[in-house]
Design a protein around this nucleic acid. Structure first.
Lengths: 151, 151
DNA sequence: TATTGTTATACTCTATAACTATA
DNA sequence: TATAGTTATAGAGTATAACAATA
């Protein structure tokens, strides 16, 4: 190796330092899975955030916008348009909150429930495909460790 | 539980389905770490992407823009402004590529090398703080499993 | 003909301030 | 006074098309 590096060119790239950071690895892995997700979920016209919102409504009928925002770390103004679009597609219905006149309970329509039944199955298939190099035990370990970071 | 769910309101939110998806967990964990990163690295005026670029230049002097883009999954047009800004801050120097007249080799300046010495130490500290609930073995396991997804 | 770096540009995502109606 | 939902808007991030210079 010459003392003067100025004339060097790089053949094999050393990314070992970045690959020693959990943040870097988590972001790269998330983006790799999201790429597959975008491709496979396009048939439902659902982005990851739409899917997350509809999934929470599915399993928490009557959930409010405020609850969605705090669960998914979304800013309230950014949720408004999403809900309006889902309502316009007749996947979501807004009903008055039983105890709080300020709030609105969110529910799936029959069409929304049908769509999400298919969409959640597809999402689970995308997951398995994206993590096909992991054993079932490794997948569970991975999620447990990730949740130790953000929950 | 009444048969009519329309008057229900949600108290405890069930996110168990989303939490069964690696993609969801990886994204949430990455965002949690990036939040800490933004806070602690602000003193260096480095965003995650700037840090990634400078780190690769640090460990691969003479690397080209094209190589940075393919390693970090950045689109070439989006790198141009970053490199120009780092050059203006006198952290990065561009030198002609020894073998390819189209390409430009990227190198750290002395100031850039000094900054990155501190910044990489801080980044490693951020990592440890963000993953303080994980043992050293768990951290290594986590990164190995994440790399099985995206590499 | 293909690749590197670049410009221009558009689109998406995210964040903040301020308003209204209700608690 | 505080909170839920909303509007308007700005900033950051990301993507595509097209070009000049070089391989």
């Amino acid at each position: 190796m010459p003392a003067d590096e100025s004339a060097h060119h790089v053949t094999k790239i050393d990314a070992s330092y970045l690959e020693s950071l959990v943040g870097y690895n988590a972001r790269r892995a998330a983006l790799a899975i999201i790429d597959r997700f975008l491709e496979q979920m396009a048939v439902y016209k659902l982005r990851p955030v739409d899917f997350s919102v509809l999934s929470l409504i599915t399993h928490n009928p009557g959930i409010t916008s405020r609850q969605l925002c705090s669960t998914l770390a979304i800013q309230p103004p950014n949720l408004v348009g999403m809900i309006q679009a889902l309502e316009k597609r007749e996947l979501v219905q807004r009903r008055p909150h039983p105890h709080d006149g300020r709030a609105i309970g969110l529910h799936l329509t029959a069409a929304g429930a049908k769509l999400m039944q298919d969409a959640e199955r597809t999402a689970s298939e995308v997951e398995l495909a994206a993590t096909h190099r992991l054993s079932s035990t490794e997948r569970k370990t991975l999620m447990r460790l990730l949740q130790k970071i953000y929950i």
